[in-house]
Simulated assay, not measured.
Amino acid sequence: MRSSAPKLADIAKAAGVSIAAVSIALNKTGSPRVSAQLRERIIQIAREMGYKPNELARALAEKRTRLLGLVVPMRDPIFFNQFIAQALSGIQSALMRRGYNLLIFSPTGKPGRETRDQMLESRFTDGIIFINTRSCTSQDVNKTIDELQRAQIKFSMINSYYGKAPINYVGVDDAAIGQAAAEYLAEHGHRQVAFFSGSATLPGHQRLVAGLRKGLAGYGLDLPQERIGCTGYERAEGIRILDTWFSTKRKRPTAIFTADDQLLLDFYDYAEMRGISIPGDIAVLNRGNTGSSDHLRPRPTTFTIPTFRMGELAADLLIDTIENAGVLPQRVFLPYELIPGSTA
């Protein structure tokens, strides 16, 4: 049994090559100085001997830190947020597979924007992953992209960007989700549809509204402004909006579409508080993260977003551009899925 970790000299001796050849094979994968066949043999010997590269030496050889930054501009604790937690799990999966580590930047300035300190700190990483949250307006997102590009920082972005800048981006088509939700509810006989949302300034909200109106219009229906409720994620405001909608039977909606899992939970709490039956008194359709509302009863009918895959793919796209200067940025809209429940 070997008493200490194998060194490059040990691998070189076993392979019958120079230490320089071993170093090139393990650290400079694109170098023509070692043939592909010899490189594979050296890597196999290193693997059998249990060799683990010194990360600092590897970083110096590659002129990279193998460290990515994560920026989540939200004042609330991010790990309690299901969307962030699932995206982070996907990011971690990609980084473990590709040999990178993660540095998380905590917000210190205006929510929705990267701070100047974070911009400076991110220079110690090979690139950053930026997750747009419910704090990010369209102006915030565009400003962040502009500043990152001018600073020549490699990055990828997740969620709620619908502009045309050539960036690495992973998200879903919220307009398509809104349209599909409207068509689903209309086909199930609903004529009075309401939209329970967070903030009118959010890009996702605006796209969902546009999609809902387009889908309803195909059935000769509309979504008037008074049936669009933005709570600002404040419980008291949500109760006020819902009390307005449910004050009289004549004006109350027959179906509600909730913009995310937090708003769905808020509505379930309201329905229990006011003695409203789901789906007896009101149908509920949700846009949410995969699996995050499985514990709710009645089980909600949900358009699910592949949040884990969003994080995983965003990390892979960023690493691809870091490791290969010729790789062009990609914008990917992942498919959503309708998960049947008993609420709509």
Rank of each mutant, 00 (worst) to 15 (best):
S35T: 11
L148W: 02
A194R: 06
G171C: 08
G163K: 04
A20H: 06
P77M: 11
T201L: 09
G238M: 03
A15Y: 04
L208T: 10
Q37V: 10
E114Q: 12
S277A: 13
Q37E: 12
D126C: 00
R150N: 14
P224M: 02
R97T: 13
A180Y: 11
I256E: 13
Q206S: 07
V72L: 14
T137S: 15
R309W: 12
V193S: 09
A46K: 12
K143E: 15
T108Y: 11
D243Q: 03
L88W: 05
H190A: 05
L60Q: 15
S293E: 04
P166L: 05
M74D: 13
T302P: 01
Q179R: 10
A21L: 05
Q149T: 14
L221H: 06
L185A: 14
R227W: 05
Q37A: 12
A175Q: 09
I278Y: 02
A59P: 00
I305R: 00
A176M: 10
D222H: 06
L221W: 07
L263K: 01
D174L: 10
M157A: 05
K13N: 06
E147M: 15
G341M: 08
I153M: 15
R113A: 15
A210W: 03
Y162D: 03
F80D: 11
I128T: 02
R116E: 12
P253C: 00
G229A: 04
T231V: 04
S4Y: 08
M157T: 05
G291E: 00
L208N: 11
D320I: 10
E187T: 12
L313K: 15
A325R: 15
S106Q: 10
Y270N: 08
R113P: 01
V327W: 14
T321C: 15
L221D: 06
Y161M: 03
L185C: 14
E62Q: 14
R191F: 07
K7A: 10
Q225D: 11
E55I: 13
T304G: 02
D320K: 06
T133V: 01
R134T: 09
F257N: 06
F246S: 03
D260F: 02
A200W: 05
S35E: 12
P111V: 01
Y51P: 09
L88D: 03
G163S: 05
S156K: 00
I128R: 00
E272V: 09
E323T: 14
Y184V: 07
G291P: 06
T321W: 07
L318A: 10
P306W: 02
V284Q: 00
A85H: 09
E187W: 12
K154C: 14
D269M: 11
N289S: 13
L285Y: 01
K251S: 12
Y219R: 10
A210V: 11
D173T: 04
T254D: 15
T304P: 12
D76K: 13
M273P: 06
M157L: 13
Q37C: 09
L88P: 00
I239W: 07
L212R: 03
G280D: 05
P6V: 07
A87Q: 11
F308K: 03
I19S: 10
T258R: 00
S4W: 05
K143D: 15
N54K: 09
